[in-house]
Design a binder for these strands. Sequence first.
DNA 1: CGTATGACGTGCA
DNA 2: GTGCACGCCATAC
Length: 89
Amino acid sequence: MKGKSANFQRRVLAVVAKIPRGQVSTYKEIARRAGNRLAYRAVGNILKKNHDPKIPCHRVIRSDGMAGGYNRGARRKIEILKKDGVLLK
DNA sequence: CGTATGACGTGCA
DNA sequence: GTGCACGCCATAC
């Protein structure tokens, strides 16, 4: 079995990539879908290091309704979500 | 392996 | 309702 530890990261990216446009998900939700619902911390960390433009990481927000952070600037993230019709706090 | 980091979440004052 | 401290997990070094 070659299953590497980074399997979680790959899973997270896959889940995020499946988020439909105009819709958002939370870090906790992503972590849950990725297999580890307690790894919501790692989810943010993984997305932070992820530089793949195919991953709409800007669609991942916090559970309290806030946009959270973004590699290109939280400001940008909020703008994108707003453009997608997603209202935040 | 141990330490440090972080785009978080929840609980409590 | 607001603010702060602790916990929690995966990655990086």
